[in-house]
């Protein structure tokens, strides 16, 4: 009886082990197949002609798989931000008359410098690096 019981336990453990290996062999490709693809977009740079961003206006563009914005403030200073609201991820809009950003989802407001001025956003808009050369603005 004991021998039988030991043999059953042993076979059960072996079978369980093989099952676990088989499950892992199936799960890993499945996980990799379903996992979001990383890289690619992140390293990209975007070049925008300076003339496309007149004073007091904003230029929205696709950057690193999401939306970004270049603003030339009154006075001529350029700034670049991620256009993703830090509250719940909606895309902010540029209000030219008020010279600020409005998030249409929950009424968050940001100044032209990206700082939160009203509403629920917990953090300022994320700043992006850029360089100006030869009449072009290179973001990223």
């Amino acid at each position: 009886m004991d021998n039988n019981s030991n043999r059953r336990t042993f076979l059960g453990v072996c079978l369980g082990g093989l099952g676990a290996i088989a499950a892992a062999a199936v799960s890993w490709p499945l996980f990799r197949y379903l996992a979001p693809h990383s890289g690619g977009d992140a390293a990209g740079k975007v070049v925008i002609p300076e003339k496309d961003v007149p004073e007091g206006e904003a230029k929205f563009f696709e950057f690193a798989g999401s939306s970004a914005v270049l603003v030339r403030k009154r006075g001529g200073d350029l700034v670049a931000f991620s256009a993703v609201c830090t509250h719940l991820g909606c895309i902010v809009q540029w209000e030219k008359d008020k010279q600020d950003f409005l998030c249409p989802c929950h009424g968050g407001h940001y100044s032209a410098d990206g700082a939160v001025t009203a509403g629920p956003p917990p953090k300022p808009l994320k700043r992006l690096t850029f360089a100006v050369a030869g009449g072009n603005i290179t973001v990223g």
């Binding site: 490709p29 499945l30 990799r32 197949y33 996992a35 693809h37």
Partner: peptide, 8 residues
């Protein structure tokens, strides 16, 4: 391009 896409 998709990881293990060929397998599926």
């Amino acid at each position: 391009d998709v990881p293990f896409g060929w397998l599926i």
